[in-house]
Amino acid sequence: MSSKRIFTIMILTMAIVGMGGFVTAADMPEQVSIDRLSDLFEGVEFDHAMHTELGEDCSVCHHHTTGTGTTDERCISCHADSKEVATVGCSDCHVAAPFSSEHINRKSLEIYQFHIDTPGLKGAYHWNCIGCHEKVDGPTECVDCHARTTKGDAFYHKNAIGSSGAGGE
């Protein structure tokens, strides 16, 4: 093998490894603060890095938006090789107020298209987390993931007269 060829391979390898490193470090957050909807419960500090190690690939959570394709047979006919999109955060597709009259009217106009049932942000979070946690015996109770606020304690009537005194969970 000529030294030139070895040199080329070295450069290429470096480029690939480097690029991989670049994607992980810069594009993929270690930690994601999920706190847009916090009110009765505090936000969640989501350990993204840990979950990326557990998930088979990005599409498990990010569907067809990260450029890894999708294996979900309901999506594959259109999204088998969908490209990576500019932003892949949950709230880029899942709206925070899915039942506002504005959103409902828009949905009503688009009712003959396929994506008529995209969940809102809160639903999307909880299905993704709880749906998987149930399968892998992860935490599923509300306070396992986010602490309840004082407002939340009052809302759930923590100190109802018949309560055990433990104040719920």
Binding site: H157, G162, S163, G168
Partner: peptide, 9 residues
């Protein structure tokens, strides 16, 4: 009215 038991019971 206030419930007898908390709502997460």
């Amino acid at each position: 009215p206030d419930p007898l038991l908390p709502f997460d019971d």
